[in-house]
Write a protein that binds this DNA or RNA. Structure first.
Lengths: 344, 344
DNA sequence: CTGAAAGCGCTTACAG
DNA sequence: CTGAAAGCGCTTACAG
């Protein structure tokens, strides 16, 4: 900490050359005599010199780094996404850094976006869609000189790259799948009300029910809180209904895992007595869930993680690709243990 | 991307003041007329200016950021650690960024350490102890002008901060716990041979066995590969032994989860027929483990995550704390479902 | 209270 | 092939 870092000047002086020459050998530019180059490299090793990233970024107007920001990095929900990021990161020459805002802390998330985009990275990848993100969105809008990719957040006013998931279609498919299994009384437990995906999936449920001419009975729509644990009470509310549903589609797997617990705790069998379906194909469920494996809708997070980094590195090297990319990823039903055919 | 970012010069020109003045209002320094300050702020808002981090870091010789590097950020093993980092991060004014090297990729890890320490952060926190980390360690040695904290890696030659876990003692406690439960035939499945903790825990096992005058019988020590799934075969090898152990202490929970699977698959009951113990208190086990909950040794990763960030922010503001900190964290036995008393 | 100037540590035309 | 100089975008003594 105390003794100043060794700078390019130090090695220039010691090697009896100009800083320009040192810079050339550091960057492997040709036009330096073999002999001088060797001498310089020797001094570099001796002094343990390595170039200052901030200074370099400043003059190059390029950081060669990519930033990712999410909420709750610790959440195992991100397992596949992060793995995708890591895998692509390893294959690129960019350094990639992750930033995380705890909970739904909007201010902190916005600060990270600002921090990153002001000269610490060349591109930022943003996961998630909170309805409270507006001021951040506004900031991004005003700073379009950096590459942005929004994952799973379709803000119409934003001209940046978007990697989207077909939540609406996925939810419809879930309901249709339940319908194929002969269920008619299908309920829905909505997810975190702050997240936009919740609405998209809710709309998918409604639409599918309508198209299938299935009635959404009184009480069949249960609104959970931001805490997925509330899936437990919501399920209980459903089970208390006079006209109990035979299947329930939950907005996400964490919620579904709690719904299953509730059913099990009431002595019901899942899926024999009630079918339960989730969304996400989250391979790691919260709080040591050990019930039956949850039938769900998969979103391809691993692929999206990979694609986002690749997209950004391509765009960063091809300065001519100007139009932002917009891509929608399809979902897939994963059949497991919590849904079976209804025998009425 | 195309149109240059707005710089301090742009706002200075537009506001008819010097860049010095703009800088003063941006940094809330007093000595600027109310009137001028307001004018400048107006222009800043209008132009959407925010200061460039790289430039600022360069002149301040301070980045106000902390970097963390781990292997396999996606691994749910990090749940508590990351949560600790996040929590402390939220309470500090530093920006914290995570970097991850996939697998045991030493080169990539080293590159991240270099990248971060060359002017992108003021301190780097490093988790983990691979025996292959030597060249990285050497680099850190040569660059002690930045704050480093090594978590769970006691490199004697390094003069940096160290937050250590008492793996040796924890392993001893595990064996003693098993002994209290009347087990005499206690075997051990070693962990990833590339990690130093494996050795420490192994040594703890040996030492405790000796002190308790318990025999380490032929075949009682099984060496797993770097893949925790090999816990399965290692357990089978143990169960094939003529003199079968009645308890096995595994080097980590992931390994233990596979050991349990192996026992269960052979029709044995856990713990009635064989007791199995892990290490880590990893709350999320791999591959949808659904066996009995594993009795284990907890390492306080949440606390360590918090402490490391706090430590570093303190040291960064108190320039006089020169001696690096070295702290050892104790472990704790967590009793769950995979160990019971032996009735011989 | 305000600005001109130096400097943080680099890179890169431009001369020679 | 090599170096002097300008400049990236800031901040901060130093004058005034």
């Amino acid at each position: 900490m105390e003794n100043r870092r060794v700078s390019i000047k130090d090695v220039a002086k010691k090697a009896n050359v100009s800083t320009a020459t040192v810079s050339r050998v550091v960057n492997n530019k040709d036009g330096v005599t073999q002999q001088i180059s060797e001498k310089v490299q020797e001094v570099i090793k001796e002094l343990g010199y390595s170039p200052n990233t901030a200074a370099r970024s400043l003059v190059r107007q390029r950081t060669n780094a990519i930033g990712i920001v999410v909420n709750n990095l610790h959440d195992p929900f991100f397992y596949d996404l992060i793995k995708g990021f890591e895998t692509a990161a390893q294959q690129t020459s960019y350094s990639v850094v992750f930033c995380s805002a705890l909970g739904g802390d909007v201010k902190s998330k916005e600060n990270y976006v600002k921090y990153l985009s002001n000269g610490v990275v060349d591109a930022v990848i943003l996961y998630g869609s909170y309805r409270s993100d507006e001021s951040m969105i506004k900031y991004i809008q005003d700073n379009e000189q950096i590459e942005f990719v929004m994952i799973e957040n379709d803000v119409p006013s934003l001209q940046c790259n978007k990697l989207l998931i077909d939540n609406f279609g996925g939810a419809k498919n879930a309901v249709n799948y339940l319908k194929e299994k002969k269920h008619r009384k299908i309920a829905h437990i909505c997810g975190n009300p702050n997240k936009k995906v919740t609405i998209e999936r809710f709309n998918g449920y409604i639409q599918a029910m309508q198209e299938a001419d299935l009635e959404v009975k009184e009480g069949y729509i249960q609104y959970s809180s931001a805490d997925y644990r509330s899936g437990y009470e919501r399920m209980n509310a459903l089970l208390d209904l006079e006209e109990r549903p035979t299947a329930v589609f939950c907005s996400d797997d964490a919620l579904a895992s709690y719904a299953v617990r509730a059913a099990l705790d009431r002595g019901l069998r899942v899926p024999e007595d009630i079918s339960i379906m989730g969304f996400d194909n989250q391979r790691i469920l919260p709080d040591r869930y050990r019930g039956p494996e949850i039938t769900t809708v998969e979103q391809p997070l691993y692929t999206i993680g990979m694609d986002s980094i690749r997209l950004v590195s391509e765009r960063l090297s091809n300065t001519d690709m100007k139009m932002p990319v917009r891509k929608m990823y399809e979902t897939k039903i994963i059949e497991r243990e919590t849904v079976c055919e209804y025998h009425g």
